[in-house]
Design a protein around this nucleic acid. Structure first.
Length: 505
RNA sequence: GGUGGCGUGGCCGAGUGGCUAGGCAGAGGCCUGCAAAGCCUCGUACGGCGGUUCGAAUCCGCCCGCCACCUCCA
């Protein structure tokens, strides 16, 4: 048997590279997580799902994985930074906006990081082995900055400690943004660089430590009270939990520059070794053809979409959202639309139906041959092959849907042997793509038997059945209309009548 | 201005030299008291212009268009 090769597009080399872990068959990687100052949006999760799929795909070919994904719970900005129009720290700003909800910025960070983890589970993402927080690695960050200073890569000013880009000639190798360009750039670049610290030696030098005694989060350091620069936390935590050299580093495309460029500069200056071998970046998504932004009404948080309608959400099944995000390959522009979400919700519903069908056939264990195993095996291989080929999720999904439709066509005629194959296939697809079964109970609340709606529906269905028996179709249809308005779909079959919630996207 | 990505049928989205996925929507049919669900059948598309080739959506060149990053942002 030939060893399958796992290929991913590497931003560093500009081509798809074979994933070759330093230790064979053990992939160690780091994925940049969000700054937790609000609920995570679907764009955040598109990127996290890429990391999730890398882990799942590696595991599918029998590799071990060490998956580290951080939580940034420091704001990092001060008035000195021009980036934000208000010059205000993200966390501080969020705290002001949230008013009395939180006692302080620490509470706010804790609240939104808990929310992040809830969403993470709802969308069936694999749990990272380590989820380090920036605030819990302050000592390591301070030591790293000191090390950079001692090695001559950093210098101190009245306002902070900076990394000297000129000391790291390879700066720009990831993004193509070289330091020289920044200098010779025209007015556009200069206008952006109206910063801040006159003692900064080079426009591209970036902060390792900010001195600020007024910041809402501050720590004591050899340079006085202040807080760390944004980039240092990831370099430090990746090295802490994986090592000086990591196999792969992932994140959103916006992180290519400056964040990942700076991570490389810091880490490689400290160790003198290449930091990450592979850099994987997920493209931004658009919503209904437009850039998602808070100023438009197209800013979609995971929370808004999956929360039940009763509490102001849209009641989207989490797996439908996950499947929608899988319907485009991570490296291509993705246009998130409610049309796609509706399609996905239908697919998820169909998958659920088939899963139930299979479980039932498994229990009944009818005699007969396994007449699906071979075909399903081919379809799984196709799905896995697609994932190994730079996470080609649309192709993997196509293979999945094909198998599901085949099983659906067979319906209740599955033999016990065939049902066994089908069940195993569903398990394997689920491990690979995470779209068959919810991983947590609460993600599947809609199926809850204690649903107060269920009783009412059953009652109405009974009345309808009676009416149909009496050939009183007018009354039967009236009941069906009533159910329809309740959002219930009624399906008659020779075996009896079943119902389910309508997909309401 | 710099860097990178992308352009496939009504829509989404695979396919990287010949064998022309899949889904959604749409049309017809089967089933049904009628529906719904399900099943069957139906779609010859690759931004433009050149070039290479027996043959190109697929390779090369030029052009057009879209998007992103270069500044906090997944």
């Amino acid at each position: 048997m030939s060893t399958p090769s796992f290929r991913l597009y590497n931003t560093l080399t500009g081509q798809p590279d074979v994933v070759e872990p330093a230790e064979p068959r053990h992939l160690r990687f780091y994925a940049c997580g969000p700054t937790v100052y609000s609920y995570a949006h679907i764009g955040n999760f598109r990127s996290f799902i890429t990391a999730d799929l890398i882990a799942r795909t590696a595991q599918a070919i029998g590799w071990d994985t060490t998956f580290v994904s951080n939580i940034t719970d420091v704001g990092h900005l001060t008035e000195d930074d021009v980036a934000d129009a208000t010059g205000e720290d993200k966390m501080a700003k969020a705290l002001r906006k949230e008013g009395q909800r939180f006692a302080n910025v620490w509470d706010l960070a804790r609240y939104f990081s808990d929310a992040l983890i809830d969403d993470w589970h709802a969308l069936n993402l694999v749990e990272p082995d380590v989820r380090p927080r920036a605030t819990e690695h302050m000592q390591q960050q301070i030591l790293a900055v000191q090390a950079l200073q001692e090695k001559g890569f950093a210098y101190e000013t009245k306002k902070g400690v900076y990394f000297s880009v000129e000391k790291f000639p390879e700066y720009g190798k990831l993004s193509g943004n070289t330091a020289e360009e920044a200098l010779v750039e025209g007015a556009a670049a200069q206008s952006r660089d109206t910063v801040q610290d006159p003692e900064k030696r080079h426009p591209r030098d970036f902060a390792l430590w900010k001195k600020d005694e007024k910041h809402l989060m501050q720590w004591h350091s050899p340079w006085g009270w202040g807080f760390p620069g944004w980039h240092i936390e990831c370099s430090v935590m990746a090295m802490e939990y994986i090592g000086e050299q990591i196999d792969l580093h992932a994140g959103g495309e916006d992180l290519i520059f400056p964040h990942h460029e700076c991570e490389i500069a810091q880490a490689e200056s400290i160790t003198g070794k290449p930091f990450a071998k592979l850099w994987v970046h997920t493209r931004f998504l658009q919503v209904e053809g437009e850039k998602m932004s808070k100023s438009k009404d197209n800013f979609l948080t995971v929370r808004d979409l999956i929360a039940p309608e009763a509490v102001g959400g849209r009641g989207i099944p989490p797996l439908a959202l996950r499947m929608t995000l899988l319907s485009g390959q991570y490296r291509k522009p993705f246009n998130f639309t409610f049309d796609k979400l509706r399609d996905s919700a239908r697919h998820i519903q169909r998958i659920e139906t088939v899963d139930q069908l299979v479980q039932q056939a498994l229990a009944e264990d009818a005699p007969g041959d396994d007449f699906v195993g071979e075909r399903l095996g081919e379809l799984y291989d196709r799905a896995l092959g697609a994932m190994l080929d730079d996470l080609n999720t649309p192709e993997a999904l196509a293979a999945t849907i094909e198998g599901v439709k085949m099983l659906q066509g067979i319906g209740s005629n599955l033999s016990g042997a065939a049902a066994t194959s089908a069940s195993e296939w569903l398990d394997k697809i689920n491990q690979l793509l995470g779209i068959i079964r919810p991983q947590t109970e609460d993600a599947d609340a809609s199926k809850d038997e204690t649903d107060p709606l269920a009783e009412k529906v059953e009652g109405l269905l009974e009345k309808r059945a009676q009416a149909r028996k009496n050939k009183d179709f007018e009354r039967a249809d009236a009941i069906r209309d009533e159910l329809d308005e309740m959002g219930i779909e009624v399906m008659d079959s020779p075996e009896g009548t079943t119902w389910r919630r309508k997909v309401s996207v």
